[in-house]
Simulated scan of single mutants.
Amino acid sequence: MVTGASGGFGGYALDWLRRLAPEDDIVGLIRDPRKAAKVESKGFEVRIGDYGDIDSLMSAFGGVDRLLFISGAPGNRRSEHAHVVEAAKRRGVSFIAYTSLAQADLVHNMLSTDHVFTEAKILQSGIPHTFLRNNWYLENEALLFRHALKTGRLIYMSDEATVGWALKREYAEAAARVLISGNEPEVMELSADPTRYGELAQALEAATGKAIEAVDLDEEQFVEALRDDASEQTVQGMVEVQRLIAHGDLEVESDDFTLALGHSLLGLEDAVKEVLSKQHLL
């Protein structure tokens, strides 16, 4: 079973699982019945379950052996994630692959605390598992790319800190392969090569043929620069992310990603092109 099956990550994971296992063995869990047709149209069985409703999860998890547990949205994430783990345990799920965050047990930031909580719940459950500690989706930088193409400046506020950017579909492929394998370690740090924003600016320039300068700003300058491009809430969220990047929370050196995939990641320039194309920026 893939949870969050109507979302971007879940959709990619289902597509990869189709290549790795019989379609009849794959089930998608979604919260909103109105989105069922989107997943069913691909030929997958769909079950309805809400992380906030443990009874719905108990019903949906019947007969599920291996679970790709895609983390939910911030808010009531701890209680919701606890429901998922409890339902999985009571229904006899034999393996959980959980999408966590890079270095979750070593850092302390706005994102890590819920993941640490969930990892602990899974450990306490006794269910065999792999924590997929995903670094950062390159798609998350789409707003900065859009701003850079407009101004010629890729702005950031994280000094020389590095990030292990990769495409969401690559993280989803790794998750699908781990779910099928069952022989992976308990923790996998899924990170591409550590990369600075200056290098990302170079890749953006190469991908578009436009001159792009990487510009390190302080927080006030960063907020002001993006004021007309996004809501105040969105910009503040990006500030929080820039803070954790500057702190080194996404600085990871690991070969777990390529080991999980069985092949190399897409090069940064081509990955940037893919993001730009999907955002209709090319």
Rank of each mutant, 00 (worst) to 15 (best):
V2Q: 00
G4T: 07
A5T: 08
S6Q: 06
F9V: 14
F9D: 03
L14V: 07
D15Q: 14
W16F: 15
R18C: 04
P22L: 09
V27G: 01
D32G: 02
A36N: 06
G43Q: 08
G49A: 14
Y51S: 05
G52R: 10
G52Y: 01
S56V: 09
M58K: 14
F61V: 05
V64K: 00
F69C: 11
F69V: 00
I70Y: 05
G75Q: 07
V84I: 12
V85G: 01
V85H: 03
A87S: 10
R90Q: 14
R91C: 09
G92S: 05
Y98P: 04
A102G: 11
A104K: 03
H108K: 15
M110T: 12
S112Y: 07
H115V: 06
F117M: 03
E119Q: 13
E119A: 06
L123F: 12
G126V: 06
L132E: 03
R133A: 10
A142W: 11
A142H: 08
K150A: 14
M157Y: 05
L167Y: 06
A174L: 09
I180N: 04
E184Y: 08
E186L: 10
P194G: 09
E199R: 11
Q202A: 14
L204K: 00
A214W: 08
A214L: 06
V215K: 09
D216P: 04
F222C: 03
V223D: 02
R227P: 03
D228S: 13
Q236W: 14
V241S: 10
L244R: 08
A246T: 04
L259M: 12
L261P: 01
S264I: 00
L265W: 08
L265M: 11
G267I: 11
G267F: 12
L268S: 05
L268K: 03
L268A: 08
E269P: 02
E269N: 06
E269W: 04
A271C: 06
K273D: 03
V275Y: 00
S277G: 05
K278N: 15
K278V: 02
